[in-house]
Design a protein around this nucleic acid. Structure first.
Length: 477
DNA sequence: CGAGTTTGACCGGCGC
DNA sequence: GCGCCGGTCAAACTCG
């Protein structure tokens, strides 16, 4: 899934560096031709040549040192990438595990990217590693962007949901103030015994979004509570494809198109829709193709009482979704850009931080790469937990600044959301197709195991801004 | 003429 | 059991 070409083209660099040396050598030869017979000049030329040889040797030595340094750096980066791959895979397994085991109880799983702003429940959550709540707080204070797992007890479940809703509303208010445009997408995971569903919210003027697939409209209804008609489409790429989608305008904001995909394609997807390959629907593809405006925004997701998974950017229209047409499953909300993320972070810009931002793998920035990594193509991403062995990270203003930019950059990439949606819906899809009979348990990164007998899990990454966040909650049903 | 859209009828789930 | 509502069907219609 994640492939980052970390190979260093040392050979090219060497060639490039050697070239000027050869030119200098030729120049020296030409000079020698013009000065044949002049002993003093020959001596001078000889000494000059020896000096140049020394310089050349120094240059070679410098290059070799640089090569070795880059090799070491490359090795470190490879280790980090491999570790991230393992973390991500483990997280996928955990999530699928938890969802399956959690079907017997009502507590949802919450996977979040970024800190859960104002989520009191998160603070009250019990850490998977049996850490005490103060340690959880410590994680938050750490301002890491890593991925953390939390186990929510049933006791604080309801209160936490209220707090999460409060957080949503608070974030919504900020968005209203900033009057941000952009794309909103929602991903909704399927109920345990239903087809996987993914809802995508996006600003789109067209009647429907171009998600790379072929659709045929088979019905239209005016849903209660929304004067905008809801259109029903089915995939016609291949006969018998069970995938269907519903398209409806948001009541509060007609510019927002809510597209809900359901089912899994039984055919290879056309070019441009490959992002759906690992998902149950096409929200990712939509996001890839809806390039209008700024599609970046902080990501957040949560689970409501209906057990739907909500993976969204802070969304002022969330209430509408919940109250009027509550989707089941995962909700991806990309209807807002992330300008406000940067505003919230409000760090003075500097070229240095910008450099870090563009090169998260810089040696002095590896602490970030331990938390979150994003490749240039954006479709590859990884998370890792930010607690446990990662406490040695040291944060400072520069880190915050770089992190803010990293978060913004990652969140701004629609492919990031695509990847998130793909991972989540992939889990959900797989889970819905397989029955889980093994004892509920969670294997942590360091080999620890945690019981999943409780009802609610939360996996979230922490960020200093608390704006780049994503939750995935387990369907309680 | 075929593919896609429209639209009223129909069906099943759910709550009262 | 009844009504409401979401979702689907299918005949009629439109369009290229």
């Amino acid at each position: 899934m994640m492939q980052i070409d970390l190979s260093l083209k040392i050979a090219d660099e060497e060639g490039g560096e050697d070239f000027p040396v050869d030119e200098q050598k030729e120049e020296r030869e030409d000079d020698n031709k013009d000065k044949v017979g002049d002993d003093e000049q020959q001596e001078a030329s000889s000494s000059q040549q020896s000096i140049q040889e020394i310089l050349k040797t120094d240059e070679i030595y410098t290059l070799q040192t640089e090569m070795n340094r880059m090799k070491e750096e490359n090795k470190e980066l490879r280790k980090v990438v491999e570790q991230k791959m393992r973390d991500y895979h483990n997280l996928q397994m955990k999530f699928a595990f938890l969802r399956k085991s959690g079907q017997e109880n009502d507590n949802p799983i919450i996977l979040s990217l970024g800190s859960d702003v104002g989520s009191k429940g998160a603070h009250e959550a019990i850490d998977l590693k049996n850490q005490s709540p103060p340690q959880v707080d410590e994680i938050r204070e750490d301002k890491g962007l890593g991925l953390s797992l939390r186990l929510h007890t049933q006791i604080d479940q309801h209160e936490e949901k209220r707090e999460e809703m409060k957080a949503w509303v608070a974030t919504d208010d900020m968005l209203h103030k900033s009057n941000l445009g952009g794309i909103t997408s929602h991903t909704t995971s399927a109920m345990a015994n239903r087809k996987p569903r993914v809802s995508v919210r996006a600003r789109c003027q067209a009647p429907t979004m171009n998600d790379g697939c072929q659709w045929r409209k088979y019905g239209q209804k005016i849903a209660k509570g929304n004067p905008c008609p809801r259109a029903y489409y089915r995939c016609t790429v291949a006969p018998g494809c069970p995938v269907r989608k519903q398209v409806q305008r948001c009541m509060e904001d007609m510019s927002i198109l809510i597209t809900t995909y359901e089912g899994t394609h039984n055919h290879p997807l056309p070019v441009g829709a490959t992002a759906m390959a690992s998902t149950t629907s096409a929200p990712g593809t939509f996001m890839l193709m809806s390039g209008e405006e700024d599609s970046t925004s902080p990501i957040s997701s949560s689970v409501d009482n209906l057990g739907q998974v909500r993976l969204s950017y802070p969304n002022p229209y969330l209430n509408n979704i919940i109250n009027s047409t509550p989707p089941r499953g995962v909700v991806l909300d990309l209807s807002h850009n992330t300008h406000h993320l940067q505003q919230q972070l409000a760090f003075p810009s500097s070229s240095h931080s910008a450099l870090k931002f563009k090169h998260p793998w810089a040696p002095d920035n590896l602490s970030y790469s331990n938390s979150i990594a994003s490749s240039s193509d954006g479709a590859n991403f990884q998370f890792s937990n930010s607690w446990g062995t990662d406490k040695k990270r040291s944060w400072n203003i520069e880190d915050d600044k770089s992190l803010a930019e990293n978060v913004s950059d990652i969140a701004s990439d629609p492919k990031f959301a695509v990847a998130v949606a793909a991972a989540i819906t992939s889990f959900i899809s797989k889970e819905s197709q397989t029955a889980q009979t093994t004892a509920p348990a969670l294997v942590l990164k360091d080999g620890e195991r945690a019981s999943t007998s409780s009802n609610k899990w939360k996996v979230e990454s922490l960020s200093p801004s608390g704006k780049a966040q994503a939750f995935i909650e387990k369907d309680p049903h």
